[in-house]
Design a protein around this nucleic acid. Structure first.
Length: 565
RNA sequence: UGAGGAGUGGGCAAAUUGGUAAGCCACCUGACUCUGGAUCAGGUUAUUGCAGGUUCGAGUCCUGCCUCCUCAGCCA
């Protein structure tokens, strides 16, 4: 269970609940997270999960997990399984409070029958098109269906036969009898039930009529004794209907619906429909592709539940549409991993270095700190030898201003080891640098008394004969623009996918202590970023994902310089 | 041009409910540093959508206006 939460940030929902409790309007807090099992959860859901489970915990209440599974044609057990995995992974526990709207189908049916008997619902036999035509527009009232005045007996009979399977899809629906002239379109005799001869992932073929959201959700909430039914802004228009249904029926309680703004993040999309398309269209490798804003994708990428929870707390909760800078998310994961991830040496793009004055065949054991932020993490030994690899980016034949790293004639320190000096550059026929000839200063080994000399840079390195190979996958933002959905209807978002969002780097050289690490393990590759072992890893063929890079001041300087030129 | 919502620095988001604009992210300095990381110290961005009004005093109250979002599925 998550219990490391920082002091809560004030938000309007906490204020409402606090006031309800104080005034005696409520005596306890029961919330619910009600996903439809038609897709994988994403970071936007994480906000809702943290809100609902977080509020329940904060006020000593409970939070239910309830699947809103009323549309058999789009839902699947694959999704109900993944959702449970994700919520649990995020650190929340619904205890025995796992529910399905489909478990309430019989009760919902009885409620519907009651509504018909009370003259508050009727079976309409108009086609979908006709119903639409009768609905009116935003500025014009709708017209009553000719079937609206059907007798209670006839509606009862028809509804019973709908359930019995006597009619084809689309031939009849059950509608609430409210007001076809209401300025709120959701109140213009909303459809409550439709016929769907489809098999449901839980109820199989027992039903061929399925209740719609507006009828199901409020009654499920009331059935479970929910006190605060928290949902997103687009349901604001539906609140009067939520209340209407509950007001017509003998329900055990009347939960309060409260709406908040859903999460939007820069450089990604957050609609299940769009994410599904990325998966089905093969634009990504699956729901858990590390480029995806899904919980499973982020988990695979190396995000921690702690970081996600911290992020959700930091962004706050309000009623205004907003888009959070992805930098905020990156801050949360860096903060968490900085404190916990063991440091390790990994050279992504190796450049061979030969220490001309280092004895051939000699190998020293060098002690390295596992995590400077955590003394308890201890130290480990690294082999050091005459031939090493350093990062290609750490060498410039013609160093630009403010470049502190290696260049001909320059000295740098090799982390935990010696200060070396570049005395020669070896190039191949095409002029590319393939090797650096360097000398080392034997007096400067880390920890030795004579090692106080300062140099401007410290490089990570790996001993060539001891290094192990790995593939490293570097991820960048999924889209090239901040708001991929900005175009009308977000139609063209696929054209905005970032082709550089995934870069596979092979031939990466790692320190030997990494041999045999298990999928999921997280490390900081010194000076580069946080990485985790991908499940694609095989013995002798490790694959790492870059979760997030380290803050990179040099990259900023270099970029600013490029901009000036 | 119907109804319902929302407008606070570059991005999020508070403001004890009329008392003189928190915090986080980002950005910029400087210190420190065997990660150009982390940390520490400091700094720049706000006439709170606009215009009036009430008041000793308004982000908070009143009036008018502007902008943005949601709703015309037998999706949720």
């Amino acid at each position: 269970m998550a219990n490391d939460a920082p002091p809560p940030v004030a938000n309007f929902i906490r204020t409402i609940i606090t006031e309800d409790l104080r005034a005696g309007k409520r005596t306890r807090v029961v919330t619910r997270f009600p996903p439809e099992p038609n897709g994988y959860l994403h970071i936007g859901h994480a906000k809702s999960i943290c809100l609902n489970f977080g509020l329940a915990r904060e006020f000593g209440g409970v939070c239910h997990l309830r699947f809103d599974d009323t549309n058999p044609t789009t839902e699947d057990v694959e999704y109900v399984d993944s959702i449970q995995t994700d919520v649990r992974w995020l650190g929340f526990d619904w205890g025995a409070n796992l529910f399905y709207a489909s478990d309430y189908f019989e009760r919902l049916y009885e409620y519907a029958m009651q509504l018909i008997k009370d003259g508050k619902a009727y079976v309409d036999s108009l086609s979908a098109d006709e119903i639409r035509a009768h609905r009116g527009t935003l500025t014009e009232p709708g017209r009553d269906s000719p079937y609206r005045s059907r007798s209670v007996e006839e509606s009862l009979d028809l509804f019973t036969r709908m359930r019995a399977g006597e009619f084809a899809d689309g031939t009849h629906v059950l509608r609430a009898k409210i007001d076809m002239a209401s300025p709120n379109l959701t109140l213009r005799d909303p459809t409550l039930y439709r016929i769907r001869h489809a098999s449901h992932h839980r109820t199989g073929d027992r039903w061929c009529i399925y209740p719609l959201y507006d009828f199901t959700h409020c009654l499920s909430d009331a059935t479970e004794g929910i006190t605060h039914s928290i949902c997103t802004l687009e349901f604001e228009n539906n609140r009067p209907l939520y209340d209407w249904v509950l007001d017509q029926l003998p329900v055990p309680c009347h939960p309060q619906q409260i709406e908040f703004a859903r999460l939007n993040l820069t450089y990604t999309v957050m609609s299940k429909r769009k994410l599904l398309k990325l998966v089905e269209g093969g634009y990504v490798t699956g729901w858990d592709d590390p480029r995806m804003p899904t919980i499973s994708g982020m988990r695979r990428r190396g995000y921690t539940p702690e970081a996600l929870r911290d992020f959700c707390e930091k962004i706050g909760v309000a009623k205004r549409d907003s888009t959070v800078d992805v930098a905020m998310l990156e801050h949360s994961i860096r903060e968490d991993l900085n404190a916990r991830a063991p440091r390790v040496m990994a050279v992504l793009r190796p450049l061979r270095v030969v220490l001309e004055n280092y004895p051939d065949g000699q190998v020293e054991e060098i002690e390295a700190v596992n995590n400077p932020e955590d003394a308890a993490a201890g130290t480990r030994m690294l082999p050091f030898s005459r031939v090493l690899y350093v990062e290609r980016d750490d060498f410039r034949e013609e160093p630009p201003p403010k470049f502190f790293r290696l260049a001909p004639g320059r000295e740098v320190r090799l982390r935990y080891a010696y200060i070396i000096k570049c005395v020669g550059v070896v190039k191949d026929a095409s002029g590319e640098v393939v090797e650096l000839r360097c000398t080392y200063d034997a007096e400067t080994r880390s920890g030795s008394p004579a090692s106080t000399r300062k140099v401007k840079a410290t490089l990570h390195w790996v001993s060539a004969p001891h290094a192990i190979d790995a593939e490293v996958r570097l991820y960048d933002r999924l889209f090239t623009v901040e708001d991929p959905e900005a175009g009308k209807d977000g139609a063209d978002y696929l054209a905005l996918l970032n082709p550089g969002a995934l870069e596979r780097v092979t031939g990466t050289k790692l320190e030997p202590s990494l041999a045999g690490v298990a999928p999921g393990a997280r490390y900081q590759f010194e000076r580069q970023g946080y990485f985790c072992v991908d499940p694609d890893s095989r013995a002798g063929a490790l694959v790492f994902n870059r979760t997030v890079s380290l803050r990179d001041t040099w990259a900023k300087i270099e970029q600013a310089g490029a901009g000036r030129r």
